[in-house]
Structure formats: C-alpha cells, structure tokens
Design a binder for these strands. Structure first.
Lengths: 276, 276
DNA sequence: TGGCTTCGGTGCGCTAGCGTACACAACAAG
DNA sequence: CTTGTTGTGTACGCTAGCGCACCGAAGCCA
C-alpha cells in the first residue's frame, strides 16, 4: 500500500530499483510513437523541431496539481495514471505506452493534472511544450484531430476499469494487467515487482502473489524475483475478463481509421509534390 | 442486476414507472444548461437556431454502438453513463445533469458510443446534430474551447469512481451517489428506486436497502417507496468519501474560469457594439 | 564471506458484500 | 375490494479479499 503521508513514498520505494533495470540509452526515433507515426509526412516534418527528447525513469512522477501541461508522446516505456486516496491506497486506472500520449486532459483544460503519473517501465518520450502544443492545436490540423480522437481511448479505458474493479475477480484483473503491460514492452518478460502490481491494481500484495502463483501453476507464466515471463499469451487471454479486449479493440478501431487517413493524406501529398 | 440477455430489460423495468413521474411539460430555456449559459451572447444567439429541443424520458437509452454522435446539452434531468458487462452486471461511472453535455466522446472520435446512456431522472435537453456540432467545432470558437475544457470533467469523474469502487465502502458510495443526484435536481427529494441505485452502483439491491436504512436511522434522509428525501445534506457529506468533493471541485474550478471568461467576452462584446 | 534490504510465499482470523430465499407493503388496474 | 405487480425489509450461509504476522529467498554492498 502506498503510504498516505507522502506521494514520495511511492517514488522512494520504486526509484532505487531503477539501477537494476537496463535503461535503454538508445535515443529512439519519434515515429516509434504510433500517433506521431500516423501523421502525414509534411505535418510530421514540421513538428519534428518542436519535439524534445526526454527519458522516463521509473518512479518519475508528475504530481497531481502540477501546472505544466506539456504533451509527452511515448516511444517506449509504460506510464500509469493513478489516484491516491486519502486513506493511502492507490489505484491506477489507465496505462499508456508508445501507442499514446500523456497529458491530454490537462492540456485540454489548461488546469494541470488531476491525477498522478507513475512510470512503471522506463523508456523515453518526446515532449511538446504546452504553448507549442496549443499553437499546433489551433492550426486545427491533422495533429489536433488525432489528439481529439485519441482522447476517447483513455475515457473508454478508465470507464471499463471502473466497471472491472467492481465486478471482476483479482485473478481476472491480474491477467488483464499483465496483457496490457505485455502489449507495451518489446520482449515477453515484464520487469516489475508484485508489490507494484498490487499498488496499481489497488489490491493487497499477497493477493497478487497467490493469483500469480496460480498462473505459474497453470504454466502460463514463469516468474522470478521482480520478473514475469509470459509463456502462454492465449492462456492469459482465456482467463482474462472481457475488459482487456474491449479497450484494445476500441483503440484499434480508432487507430485503423488513422492509418487509412494517413495513407490517403500521404498519397495526396506525394501527388501534390509531383505536380509542384 | 441487469439481465444479460438484453439491454432492454433495463429499459423495460424502468420505463413504465415514468407514468408516476411528473414529467416537466414546461419547455426549458437552453440557458438552463450551464455550458450554454457560459457562452458569450453573440455565440449563444448564433447557436440558438441550431438547437433542437428533446425530452428525456426515463429508460431512454442510447445504446453502445449507436453511430449517431449528436451532442445533447441537458437543461434538466439526469443521465448516467454505464457499462454492461458480459456477466449481466452493470456499473454507472459518470453522471451528467444540466451542468454538462452528453456525447462528447463519440463526437470527438466520430466512432459512436462505447457505453450505454441511461436516463435516471426525466428532463429535457437541446440537441446539436453531429454535423452542425462538427461545423461549430471547426470554427474553433468559444464553444469548441468550452467543450474541450468540459471533457476533463468526465475523465476526472470516471477515474475517481474507478478508485472509489475499489477502496470505499458501499455506505460511503451511496452517500456520494445521493449527493451527486441531489445536485442535479430542483428539490430535496430524489425520485428513484433502490433497485435502480443498486444497478448504477453495481451492487446488490439488498446492500442498498441496508445502507439507506442506516442513513434513515441516523436521521439524514426520509424514505418512501421510490423516493428519498434528504433531510441533512451536511450529514451525508460527512459520511461520504472524498470522491464527491474532488469531482465537484474539479468541475467548479473549470467552470469558474468559464464564467470569468464569459464576463470578459461579454464586456468586450458590448464595448465593441458601442463602438459600432 | 557476511550483513542488510527488499521481495515473495504462506497461514489465519475477520468482514464486507454476495446469492438466495421469502414475506410484506405500496401501488395500479380492473 | 380484489388481484397482480413491483418495491422494500430481513435473514442466513458463503466467499473473496483484507489486515496482520512471520519467515525464507534473492539480490546488494562491503
């Protein structure tokens, strides 16, 4: 459980283990981010000089109430968005990887974050400063449209998680969580402690231990201290509640449209340049 | 519990009781909606002819998957946004009254609703058709800005509810729910069955009964079949978890800004007309 | 090597909330 | 007034998950 007295306790608890994580020193290209990749080339080129590379270190947090509302396009790593309750407990209600962007809500409202952002898996991102983002946004171009469309993804996800919290067993939710983590990581091995999973799900660490024990017994995963290797993805999906699939398909539905739009735009762009 | 076999079971169960509810036949003015009211006068005037009055009857639902993505600005009544799970259980994760608008998410994404909309309390709304809304939106005027700012409200609310579902007792959640209902209704009496409250919270009807029993024993409410009269609002707030206050203050924070902006714009508008 | 810290596994009693079942009260329609 | 329907109150056993406590194992640092 996260301690009440300070948000930093979470930071403290999880930061040090960063040492044991191989931090990808390789600076990844912005188009590793699926949203940036979906931009038509001319828009993308124009945006490039505005983007600033940042590394995400585990435990890095954007505290609720921060007034900055920069956008961060993830190229790798995993960031969770969580609420801390007055009783010291936490729940993460959305997870973002290289398919998305962090900071949309505070960017739209201009009001600063209402939730904590926790880096669960180290990685890197490209920052678009709030003022530049605002200017881009007001051009009302493809980027603006893309961001607005993307907005629906966290909304769906959070709502589904709320319902999932209510109605599905911890066993099922662990599966959901492992799968969504797996989707955002290059290998089949998750580098995370059970204790942190518990904090993210908002359940006891012991509960996670037994649930994961069952999964290993069933041969779906292999676990070591601080690691979970997935052996049978389909098996996990079978044990999982529908929530994982719903959230994922919602995103894919939206994103497929983006890809189509991008192709179309790129074709028309290259046609235009042929005529120029 | 909502039955699995059909969304309509919910409809069926709750529709007929509409007869016993006095449906406000009075057609309310659009500016009863706080977002429309926050528009500067010239914008508001321009928008008026585009708005179409609709009544919301209890049980009216916009099914998940519907392709229409019109906006509905509520002037009265209460609409909940809920997920139906495969196991037939439901949870509402956001509630909207005359402070907000329905259909933002599907409007932004253009993808249709991902959740069900349930009318909990009858009322009326003004519809802005999706195509007109899109055109308005692309003017990038005050309305667009307002809508984007408003977006953050349901996001915060849903996230808070997700955490609340996990960590707070049914007793506390009932208080939260009654309060948020009360905020959106003219009198101190809620016209709703315990069974429907249970569906919205995603808990058993019996659980609601005992929780409400405690509240009446404590003298905070008085209850009749299908009615809950709130006698001691402060008492409810004291028993409630922090979630209610957090969501509410988030909205007020955003909305206060809007009111300020509106005053400023109206002053500059009237100044402009003086010079014209 | 030994000592320290963090992580993970296990057991036990407890409680909130679930599922089920049933009875009664309020209301509607005839 | 009768009859059917829907909403509400109550009770009882069950289970998932909690809180707590403790111990061993893995890794870190010297």
């Amino acid at each position: 459980m996260l301690e009440h007295h300070s948000v930093h306790s979470c930071l403290d608890r999880h930061t040090h283990s960063a040492k044991s994580w191989r931090v990808a020193s390789l600076e990844q290209a912005p188009e590793q981010n699926r949203l940036l990749a979906a931009l038509p080339v001319n828009e993308y080129q124009r945006l490039l000089p505005l983007l600033e590379h940042v590394s995400l270190l585990p435990g890095w947090m954007n505290h609720a109430g921060d007034q900055r509302s920069d956008l961060h396009f993830l190229t790798s790593g995993i960031v969770a968005r969580a609420h801390l309750m007055q009783n010291g407990k936490a729940t993460a209600f959305a997870v973002t990887g290289n398919e998305g962007v962090i900071g949309i809500a505070s960017f739209l409202s201009g009001l600063g974050l209402t939730s904590e952002m926790v880096v669960l898996s180290p990685g890197s991102a490209y920052r678009l400063r709030a003022d530049l983002a605002r200017r881009e946004f007001e051009r009302h171009g493809v980027l603006a449209d893309l961001l607005l469309r993307y907005c629906v993804t966290p909304i769906t996800e959070i709502g589904q998680n709320a319902a999932c919290n209510r109605h599905h067993s911890v066993d099922q939710q662990i599966c959901r969580w492992i799968l969504s983590f797996l989707d955002r990581v290059p290998s089949n091995e998750l580098i995370i402690t059970q204790s942190l999973i518990a904090d993210m799900l908002g359940v006891r660490r012991e509960g996670v231990t037994v649930a994961i024990g069952k999964l290993e017994k069933a041969g779906l995963i292999h676990r070591r201290r601080g690691h979970i290797a997935v052996l049978d993805r389909a098996g996990l999906e079978a044990r999982c509640c529908e929530c994982y699939a719903i959230v994922r398909s919602q995103y894919e539905r939206g994103f497929r449209l983006e890809v189509i739009a991008r192709d179309r735009l790129q074709r028309s762009a290259s046609r235009a340049s042929r005529f120029a």
